Amino acid sequence: MAVRHQAEKIGLALTTAAGPLTILADVLGLLDEVSPNGIQLVTLLILTSVTMFLLLEVRRFEILDSVDQRLAELDIDGTATRLRRERYGGVERVHSEFPISHFKALIREADSEVTVLQTFIPNLHLLQNALRDALTEHSEVRVRILLLFPKSPVANLRHEALRSVHSPTPPVNVKVAIEHNLESFARLSAALPERARTRLEVRVYNSLPSMAVYRADDSYLVSSFLHGMLAIDAPQTEIKGSDTARGAEVQEELNTLWQIGKPVDLADWQHSIELIDFDNVNVS
């Protein structure tokens, strides 16, 4: 193979040099001594040589076609997905803050479930239309909301955690924010047709939240409750697949809090909250 490549290089060099040399010889009249039609003859010889070299290269083009075919047969996306699941536990990417447009798109594409786990949902006003559309336009989609019990002592703890010496504004009143969310969901529920209303479920939990989660089918956006910062302003880890290591962990947490949570009757959420009694306050 090396000898062939070397021969090709020499042949191409000679062919390239033949053009200028032929023109020079013709100007000097040297070709007339070879043949009255010397220039035409030499030109024909050069074209013949070039054609031969091009024919030799056809095999290489065939090899390139074979490479393209082999690449087409590879499941590159499938391999990338498998490696992501094995090495990164299903983590797709990390967003610097909550990607509101991206999550709204995930809601629109959801076929079965949208779930939010928060102390309260600061960006609910940005998501309400998408949640309403999911409930009215997709007959199979459930919307499940988990909020902190407004009377929980954890609400006061989170209120203090949001207090930041770097912020000139007072911290969010978590209890009031939760109640505002409940009122918003009550209005949303009242505006829904009956068949959609039953698929909107809100529960409150009385426990220290471990993470904030926004789920649409098998996609999760997960963040932490940091001091002096809302969870939606913290980096968001996007996870794909409830059967991945990280996805299964997050889904297990959702399942646990849903089981210990108490349902809220959105027809009269204030009265419903008053009736809720967590026998043993669990803040562990």
Results as ranks from 00 to 15, higher is better:
T16P: 01
R203A: 05
V202E: 05
V213E: 03
S167Y: 05
V42W: 13
I276P: 03
D68K: 15
A245R: 10
T22A: 12
A7G: 07
R93I: 09
L135T: 04
E274P: 02
A248G: 03
R199H: 09
S272T: 10
I239D: 00
H159C: 08
P171G: 07
R108F: 05
A7H: 10
E140C: 08
L188M: 14
S284K: 11
T198K: 14
L192Y: 02
A105Y: 04
V154G: 03
P193N: 03
L45Y: 11
S210C: 05
L148Q: 11
V281D: 05
F149C: 09
F278E: 08
A212T: 12
Q270R: 15
L226Q: 11
R203V: 07
L55E: 04
Q236I: 13
L14T: 06
T237K: 04
V204I: 02
L266R: 00
R215L: 13
A17T: 06
H227T: 07
T79M: 13
Q236K: 10
I276R: 10
S139L: 14
F149H: 09
V283G: 06
N123R: 07
S167E: 14
A248I: 06
E160Q: 14
V42Y: 13
I76C: 03
M229H: 07
E274W: 06
L83Q: 05
T81H: 14
L28Q: 12
L200V: 04
R142W: 11
L12N: 12
L275S: 14
V222T: 05
F149E: 09
K240M: 10
I121E: 00
A134S: 07
V141F: 00
I232H: 03
R158C: 02
F225T: 01
K240C: 06
L275F: 05
L71F: 08
T119N: 14
I239V: 15
L56H: 08
I10P: 00
A110H: 02
A110I: 01
H102K: 14
A155H: 01
E183L: 12
R158G: 01
Q270K: 15
D279H: 13
A186S: 15
L83A: 13
G38F: 04
H102W: 05
P122E: 02
E62N: 06
I107H: 01
D243T: 09
L126A: 15
L117C: 05
A231I: 03
D26T: 13
L254V: 07
N173K: 10
G78V: 11
V116G: 02
L41E: 04
D268W: 01
L24R: 09
L148N: 01
R215N: 06
A245P: 00
K175P: 00
H102D: 11
L221D: 04
R163I: 03
L55F: 02
V58P: 02
E113V: 15
E274K: 15
L126T: 05
L221A: 00
P168K: 12
D26I: 05
V250G: 03
A177D: 01
P263A: 08
I107N: 09
E113R: 12
T115R: 02
D279I: 15
L147T: 07
L54R: 07
R203Q: 11
E92G: 01
A267Y: 04
I121W: 00
H159S: 12
G11P: 00
R93E: 08
E57K: 08
L14N: 02
T15E: 11
S223L: 11
E97V: 08
